[in-house]
Structure formats: C-alpha cells, structure tokens
Design a protein around this nucleic acid. Structure first.
Lengths: 210, 210, 210, 210
DNA sequence: TATGAATGAGGCTTCATTCAT
DNA sequence: TATGAATGAAGCCTCATTCAT
C-alpha cells in the first residue's frame, strides 16, 4: 500500500481533474459523446471552461482517458471478486474455471450497465494496458490484470503457452461478441450465447495449457 | 444470374448515388469521417449539395451504407477467391481449411489496405447481413455469406452445431484481433499472431462439427 | 462608359457584398478594426454570419479590400475635382500646380475626415494600384491615377523622368507626413506644415521634369 | 558619461523588465504581434505571467515601448557610424552628404533586417522623440538625434530653415518609401530606388539651407 | 515581489440544412 | 430533379486578467 502525499495545490488540481472526468463520464454515458460539449462538462464539474483545457486536449482526449480508466476498473473489480470468491469457498477452481468466472463477472456487469457497454464500445482490452485510474490523495497501488493472471497461474502450477496472445484474444472475443449480442440480440440472445462463449473460452484456454 | 434492366432516368439516379458513395468513401478513408463534410462529398461527386439529401439522410447514413457495402464486398471477394482456388486445384480442402482460407484472404486484404481496415473498424460482421452493394445497370445477384457457407457444408456432408453463433464468433474474433494487431502491432506482430489466430479458429470450427 | 449586365442572382450577391463592405467600413471607422467583430459586421449588413465568409476570408481581408476601395475613391474624387476646376476656369495650371491641386484636395479631405485618415493609416498608395471599388449593377469604368497623370502630362507636353517613382514618392510623402501632422500636430500644426509640404512636392516635381 | 548606480533589487527588476522586452521582441519579429500571447512572452522570459503585469499594461504597451527602443537604437547606431566615419577619413563631408550617410546607414540596416523593418513598420520617426532604450546597470547617456544634428550643423556653420519639419519630412520619406520598396519591390527595386531617394533628400536639404 | 492556476467572456468558424430558382 | 446561395445555431478554443499563495 504505497501512499503519496500531496500538497494543497496539487490536491486541488487532482480534485478538478477528477471532477471533470466524472462529469464527462456521466454526460458521455447519458447523452453520448457526440452530443456532449466541453461547456457542459465544465459546467457540471463546476469549473471554468478554460480549466478543462488545462487538463485535457479536447473531448477525445478525455474520452480516451475515461475508457482506459473504466475498462481498468472493470478488471480490478473482476479480480477482486474472484479473490473474494476463492477465499470464501472451499471449492477448488481450475484455471479455466477462473477465466470463466472473470468472464462471467465482466459480461454480467456489462449487460447490466448498457451505458457503460456502449461507452467502452469494443475497447475493453484498453484496460489490460492502461494507465492508472482516477488519482486521489491516498491511493492503493493497483494490480495489473496480466500480473494478476500470471501469479494465479504460478500458484496453480500451470503455465500458458502464448500467454499474451491468449489473454488478448479472449478479451477481444468477450468484448466484441458481447457488444453485438447484448445490444442487438444478434445473432442470438445473451443468455443463449453465454454458454457458447464460455465453451469457446475453455477451448482456447485448455489448448494453451502446456 | 438474374439481371435487372433500368431505364435512363433511373440509371442517371444510380450514377449520382454511386458517385456520392465513392466520393464519400475516398474522403472517409483519406481524411476521416469526422473531417469530411457534405460539401466535400457533393463537390467530389460533381453534384449539388442539395442532391446529397435526395439520396442520404446525413453523413452517418452514407457512412453506414458504405460500411455495409465494403464489408460485403470483402466477403464476396473471399468467397470468389475460394471458389476459384477449389476449382483450380486437385487438393481436397477440409471445412476448417476452407474457413482458414477465407480468413487468410480477409486479413491479408485488410493488412494491405489500412485505410479500409480503419474505416470498417470493428464492423466486419455487418457484411454478413448487409444490404446489397453498389448498384449498377446490370448486376449479378450476390450470394449471402451464410448461404454460401451452408451450401458448402452441405456439399461436404458436414454440419455445424450452432451455425449462426459459430460464424458470428469467428468473424468477430478475426476482426477485433486483427484491428489491434495490424494497426498497433499489439500485443504481437501480425505475422506472429496469424498462426495463433488460425489455430483458434480451427479449434472453434472443429468443436462445432457434429 | 462600359456597362455590364448582371442577372438577378449575381445582383443579389453584389448587394450582399456591398452591404458587408459598407457595414464594415462604418464599424471600422467608429469603433476601430480591433473592436469590430464579424458578428457585428454581418448583423449590420442584415446577412447571416456565414454569409460573411462566402465573400471574405476574415476581418483582415475585408479591411484590406476596404482600404483599396477607399484610397481609390479618394484619387477618383481628386481627379474629378481637378477636371472640374480646369474646365471651369480660364486660369492655366502648370504641372506642379496640378499636383499641388490634387495634393491639396487629398489632404483637405483627410483632415476633415479623421476617421478615414486613421483607417487608411499610411496606406494611401494602395489607391494607386488597387482593384476596382464597390461594384454595382451598372458601373462606369474608373480611370487609374497613373493613366490620368500620364495623359495629363502628355496634353501639357511635359514628361517626367522616373514617372512611377515620382508619383509613388509624392503619395507616400503626403500620406506619411499628414498622418502624423493631422493626428498629432507633430512636429507642427497642419496649416503651418502645408506650405512646407507643397514646397517639397514642387521641388520633386520640377526636378523630375525633363 | 553620466552613470547611474542601482542597488541589487532595482537591478533584478531591470533584468526582468529587459528579459520581458527582449522576449517580446523576438516573438513579435518572428511570429508577429497578433500571434504572440502574454503567456509566451512571460514563459520565454522565465517569469510568471503575473509578473508581466507588474511592468506593462498589456501587449500593446510593450509593443510600443519596443518600437521606441528599436527605432531609437537605429538612430544611435547611425550617428555613431557617422562619427566614426568622419574621424577616420580626411574627406570633408557636406551637410547633405552627412544626411545621405545617415540615410544609407538606416536603409541598409532595414533592408538586411526585414523582421525589424516589418516590426517598426512605418514608425521610424518614433525614434526621434522616444524614451530611453533598454536600461542597464551602468548606462551612458544617449544623445538625441535632433540635438546631434543641430550641433553638427553648428559645427559646419550651416543652418537649416524649418529644422524640425525638414528632419521629420526626411525621416518619414525614408521610412514610408523603404517599407514598400524593400518589402514589395514596389514600384521599383530597392537598388534602383536608392539613388532616386538620395536625390530627393538632397533636394530637400539643399532647399532648406539658408 | 512573484507566481501560475483558474477563469469565462466572446471571438472565430464551420457546416448541416433549407429553399428559391 | 438538381442546384448552391444563404443561413445561424452551435461548438471550439484562446487568452487577458485576476488573486490566493
């Protein structure tokens, strides 16, 4: 738990930046990125319009920053949920089971938060590499999903061939299929597609286990 | 080969529409959709600005029409190429081989036409369902990719469980991974990723073969 | 008297352009170029803001066009006044006298129209070369000051060495000195400076007469 | 040689002011006054934005101060050059010759420093009256161009009628014609115009010699 | 004295859309 | 059907200026 002290001015700057980010997120997910103006973001954040430009280049800069933050948060939550589950159950999960657990967590979350799903669109994999999330005065250090996965595999005594490609492929598969299925029911309903998706993921994982 | 006759007025209308579509495509792929204006599209097509509105609602209408057309074209070309290949070789391709052939055709094309890849973005699957392509005086009827695949499977005496989901999943997988890998070399170079992608596709296909 | 017929649309375009020019002129000379906005110009001309941009690049484009027009008008008036004077008097004016007449006309005009003087600043010589003034439906052809001067000299059987340089030098001299003297009374009052200026001009003219 | 002592605080203040002036000058002559912002001036001078306002009212205040300084410098250099020349040659220069020498010095300098020419625009005569130049720790007292000229005339036993007007007229003539000729080659090239300008100046000077 | 984060008014410009021809 | 002049809403972004530190 590394903690960084900040002085009053820097704290205020962080607050303004975070206010801008959360205002933008709310607007983007309700009225859409195209229909959101800088003026609206600034007004909602209770800062001047010029202040926006102290922290972000333009609307697309803040949009991208938010996608990174939000996708990262999803992975953080999923990892935390898996950890909690494992530590409260006696059941022993296989590596595939754990991936399915994570997948299930993510697609359940996205299916319940359509605005978020639309917003991150097909960019879930940004969360794999992204820069840190909202900064605050005292902040826990976040764990990277790949680091998390590697240590999990190590603990389980399993290794994955093509580790990076496997992770990436699965994340892209989850996101791109869910996007269409959840939003359009295309080519099939979400609940019907889910088992098929899980099956595909198990295929890919098991194939990668040395 | 059904052919449709058109009279001279309709032909002229078709020409204007096609001029608008191709002008828009050239602009979209060179300067980007956001930076393209209706005025530019109309000017490039040598029609009046008002004429644009006789054929399309707005910029996003023509953009979507073009994505459908272009992704559809890709599938048409891929199917034609496979047919040609099969009829000129004595080699007997398995069903998986044929899917790989199609996949290879598509990703090779996209990797050589970055502007097209960027333009269709992650919407390749639109080509599976889409409306007809550019219309012309005398036009062959186009074959739907799913129809094509089904008749192919039938000829080979093979059936796929979860046919729709399988096709859809593979197309999404191809597109979303290629988009990142080709454009960013992320998480690995295109040539390194290709065999892995092919392997995943074979896994999915073979698993679906009853 | 060449006259050019224009159709209704072109006439309307001319009217709008002229409205913009005269609105801009009024604003520039009352509140100043820096304090004038495109919005004000358009509103005063009763046209849409976008219409401004159909005719001019930006504020400085219309400012320059106006300087050319206004300086040209000054020369037109001065020439007309000299012609009138010559045709109503029996007095025979020398070449120097005629230049002094023109000079006097110009500086008198400028001293009575401070706003105009400030506006054209030290750019009087633009009127020597400039493009035509306000266009209208039926327009007399305008005479160029240099052409006017040359034919005048010819009629008087006089030729000037270094014709272009002489004209240019005198115009610059008139404008740059008047600007300071009239506006600041610097280094002397206008009425005291005038005879000195006339004397200098005679020196230059007489020196140039072959 | 009067010298003024300054204490350390005043020196530091002078340094900041000079840093602001030279930063502004560099920006004004490279990107133009309109395109220069207070922020840029302050940053280049390594002072805070607020500091700018401790020394200058606004951008136009510093611009005007700089024109005075720069035009004054030109006269200082020209006078120094003439003095040097006179003290190193046995040749006896007439009053006209000396004015031509000064003129030549100035126009040569301006023709070699287009940025400076554009910057002072047609305001060379500001240098005749202007406030002191850059201040520094120990500074020689500068001589006024008119004082210099008067003492020169006195030494040569010559007097000029209309002294102020003559000086002013010549300076305006030099500046306004050179501005167009050097920048636009209009109405003639600089090298062709130069002898004509010199001739005009001699005419005016000689006419003023009692 | 010096700073620079914050401001927000307001200019500029674009561009989709209309409608008279 | 086709046009393109005209519109003006709308958004972007800058930048001079202030003021708390």
């Amino acid at each position: 738990m590394k903690k960084i002290k900040m002085n009053k001015i820097d704290l205020n700057k962080e607050k303004k930046k975070n206010d801008l980010l959360s205002s933008a997120y709310e607007l983007f997910t309700t009225v859409g990125v195209e229909n959101t103006t800088i003026t609206q973001i600034a007004r909602k954040a209770n800062v001047g319009k010029g202040t926006f430009y102290l922290y972000f280049q333009d609307k697309y800069d803040i949009r991208n920053a938010l996608i990174s933050i939000k996708t990262n948060e999803i992975f953080q939550e999923a990892m935390k949920s898996l950890n909690d589950y494992c530590s409260h159950t006696s059941e022993k999960l296989s590596v595939s089971d754990k991936f399915i657990y994570i997948t299930d967590y993510i697609i359940t979350k996205l299916s319940k938060d359509i605005a978020l799903l639309k917003y991150i669109s097909k960019n879930l994999s940004w969360g794999l590499y992204s820069t840190p999330a909202f900064q605050s005065d005292e902040k826990e250090e976040l764990i990277d999903f790949k680091t998390f996965t590697m240590s999990m595999l190590e603990k389980d005594g399993v290794s994955l061939k093509n580790f990076d490609m496997t992770i990436f492929t699965i994340v892209e598969l989850i996101n791109s299929t869910c996007y269409n299925v959840i939003l359009n029911g295309d080519p099939i309903t979400f609940s019907d597609y889910k088992p098929y998706l899980f099956r595909c993921i198990r295929l890919i994982i098991n194939d990668s286990i040395a």
